[in-house]
Design a protein around this nucleic acid. Structure first.
Length: 695
RNA sequence: CGCGAAGUAGAGCAGCGGUAGCUCGUUGGGCUCAUAACCCAAAGGUCGGGAGUUCGAUCCUCCCCUUCGCAACCA
């Protein structure tokens, strides 16, 4: 367990169709970096690898929309992402990319070996195909009108407006998002990986041998295994990606979730000729840092692939974090509700460590957490500036004032209980931080360090050397006894400061370097073995004037960020596209005859009840004068059943009937949607006879 | 609908069978070396709701509610 010879740390490959935001950092890059820096400080053999994930359909679609090539898309974002990581101090030993040559060869060979060993199943299925752009369409890339709520922008797998799960067949007027073509079904062949064959292996390996994994990870794996695994297609129809290295597989590429994790292997290959030591020897500890959305791929599918291929180590742990929300709402890149790292770096130059601190201190380790700018400011101003920074600063200032700028002697003869307590606090801190880090509890580890500086402040307050200094002898200098007390206090505070530098180094590397500079010592002092030692600074050594480690963050900066976040918010896609298009609306012009095809009548709701097991559906009985009809409508989130009764509504009466949750709906009720997604019934201004024509 | 995780003071978190704890914030006091920073103290919670097991439950069991995630060819 503890005798691993090598450590291989991976952080999830960010998808190169956009920049990274703070949720990405908090989710895996910061914890992975802290862990790697900690291991390096312990002089362990560690490789920290990562890279951009550059394949997959969303990239080809972005390229198509922007009129550039997929390669140009990934080149652009790979550069931005890499730059953000470098500036944030994420210390990858290599940051590679999956469009690279080594990766193509590695992933291709990996697939080929599995293929030749007969580990895949070949299956022919029918899939939707866009004949105009000559591409197969995932359900996600087919849109049409939702049969449940009539949202015209529902996806082939789901309607985001009403949350209904859909399949492409259910959409009214299905269209390809790529070209407006009507999708047609077409035969296609793919290679499936029969995960079920690895079920018993996975069961033993995870459920029996890795009970120490985090609750969220273990729970989700157990759920998958209990449900039973199924074959999964490992190839896709696309021309962007890694060609399937099999005869007759033209126009097919490896599924991104097959190719991406192999990217960890390729990156290691690019880094070192000794890559196989890290991937193939049992005494390597492999740790994948990821966000919770990736759990199954890293705990089930990739390990099964590694096992099937043979010859690779399996991850020892997969400490997945939950998600970070922003100002109470979940991050959404499409709505631009995010704090982008590249923008933070421009807005807060020199404050990289502050963001590292806040994201670690508030990391979503056990549940989703919320990032607020107010909390960012509070943590900076109180914990970093007031507690940690201030301790270091007052130590240095006093040392210059009372000890002539040199490390004072420790007079063992007059050490009292308070001195001894702080000495053991310093010695104990290391163990606490180590335990927390070994168990991937980064928040706790960081807290222990801040707590140590808190104890330092308290110690100094009790010793109050500035008061003691006033006990002067006849010469006007502090009395000899008084000076001894001052010496001891500042000696210990300085040793504590040196310890803080060692401990904080994995978390806030830039801050640790600043502290080294003040103490005039070399990087070597940051070696982890120095943590807990009380003789890091030698007596008589002269130190520099202090510089401030952190600056206060003003209210104005915070309100500006909140403002920026809110003003940058993109309204739902439908509304923006309408604003952008020419006056009128997004749909093509029609003639009167098209409109006349609709039969619209007024109706009176006579009865209404909620449809069971459907969040959004109400079942209504509507009086249309000559007849009564049952209509199912997706308005339950906006109207209660009882308030619907007696309402006048406008009904489309010649719409083909459609079954929803087993109830046949014989019409459609018209509503208007305002900007925040709330539905309002359309209703006659004054009461009219049920069954009146609407035109 | 199914599966997983989470719901504890104003905020963020810990505890997980025996009189509810930490940090920040708030209020009051003290100090002045320190970036109006530091130290001390107080106020603030029927531990999501309900039932059960137990001498006793925040902690175990069951049901329900809320949030997030996963799955159904979304990386």
């Amino acid at each position: 367990m503890t005798d691993f010879k090598r450590y291989l740390i991976t952080a999830a490959l960010p998808y190169a169709n956009g920049p990274v935001h703070i949720g990405h950092l908090a989710g895996c890059y910061i914890p992975a970096d802290i862990y790697s820096r900690y291991l390096r400080a312990q002089k362990r053999d560690v490789k920290f690898v990562g890279g951009s994930d550059e394949h997959g359909v969303p990239i080809t679609i972005r390229a198509m929309k922007e009129g550039i090539t997929p390669q140009q898309v990934v080149d652009k974002y790979h550069a931005i992402i890499r730059d953000s990581f470098v500036k944030m101090g994420i210390s990858f030993d290599i940051y590679s990319r999956t469009s690279g040559k080594v990766h193509h060869e590695t992933a291709s060979a990996f697939f080929k070996k599995m293929y030749e060993d007969g580990l895949f199943e070949e299956k022919e299925t029918e899939q939707y195909y866009d004949e105009k752009t000559k591409t197969f369409l995932a359900d996600r890339y087919i849109t049409g009108t939702c049969p449940v709520c009539a949202n015209p922008n529902a996806y082939g797998d789901q309607c985001e407006k009403c949350g209904s799960s859909l399949s492409p067949e259910q959409l009214i007027n299905p269209k390809s998002t790529l070209s407006d073509a009507v999708p047609v079904k077409k035969q296609t062949k793919h290679w499936y990986f029969p995960l079920q064959q690895y079920e018993s292996f996975l069961r033993t390996w995870i459920l029996d041998e890795h009970k120490e994994w985090k609750n969220n990870v273990y729970g989700q794996c157990k759920s998958w295994l209990d449900k039973g695994l199924q074959s999964r297609a490992m190839t896709r129809d696309s021309n962007w990606g890694i060609k399937v290295p099999v005869k007759g597989a033209e126009g097919k590429v490896l599924y991104v979730w097959f190719d991406a994790p192999i990217g960890y292997i390729s990156a290691t290959k690019e880094l070192t000729g000794a890559w196989a030591d890290y991937w193939c020897r049992e005494d390597t500890k492999l740790v994948h840092f990821i966000g919770k959305d990736n759990i199954v791929f890293h705990c089930i599918i990739f390990p099964a692939m590694l096992k099937a291929h043979g010859g690779f180590v399996l991850p020892d742990n997969v400490p997945a974090n939950e998600f970070l929300n922003i100002e109470g709402e979940k991050v959404s890149t499409s709505r631009n509700w995010a704090v982008w790292v590249d923008e933070y770096l421009k807005d807060f130059p020199g404050c990289e460590d502050v963001l590292r601190y806040v994201l670690c201190a508030n990391a979503p380790e056990t549940k989703d957490n919320d990032f607020t700018w107010k909390d960012f400011q509070d943590r900076n101003n109180s914990e970093l500036v007031s507690i940690f920074g201030n301790f270091v600063n007052r130590t240095f200032v006093l040392m210059h004032k009372l000890c002539a700028g040199k490390v004072p002697k420790l007079h063992e003869d007059i050490l009292d209980a308070t001195d001894k307590a702080i000495m053991s606090d310093i010695q104990n801190a290391r163990g606490k931080v180590e335990t927390a880090l070994e168990n991937f509890r980064f928040r706790d580890a960081l807290f222990e360090i801040i707590d140590l500086s808190r104890k330092g402040n308290k110690y100094m307050q009790e010793k109050q050397p500035w008061i003691v200094a006033k006990q002067t002898s006849t010469s006007g200098q502090p009395a000899a006894d008084a000076q001894k007390i001052i010496d001891n206090c500042l000696h210990l505070c300085l040793q504590l400061t040196a310890n803080l530098a060692v401990l904080i180094n994995p978390f806030l590397p830039t801050t640790a370097r600043k502290m080294l500079h003040m103490m005039k010592v070399v990087d070597k002092m940051l070696d982890w073995e120095n943590a807990g030692k009380l003789k890091l600074l030698s007596v008589g050594y002269s130190l520099r004037e202090p510089e401030l480690l952190f600056r206060k963050i003003e209210d104005a900066e915070i309100t500006a960020q909140v403002e920026k976040l809110k003003s940058g918010l993109v309204k739902p896609a439908k509304i923006t596209s309408m604003e952008e298009s020419k006056p009128g609306n997004g749909k093509p012009e029609i003639v009167y005859d098209d409109f006349a095809k609709l039969e619209l009548k007024t109706g009176l709701v006579t009865a209404c009840e909620k449809v069971e097991k459907a969040d959004k559906l109400l079942k209504l009985e509507v009086d249309l004068g000559k007849e009564r009809r049952t209509i199912v409508s997706g308005i339950a989130l906006h109207y209660k059943p009882e308030e619907m009764i007696g309402k006048q509504v406008i009904v489309v009466t010649n719409l083909a009937p459609r079954k929803m949750k087993g109830i046949e709906s014989q019409g459609m009720i018209l509503t208007a949607e305002d900007s925040d997604g709330k539905l309002q019934l359309l209703t006659p201004e004054n009461s009219v006879t049920p069954g009146s024509n609407v035109s």
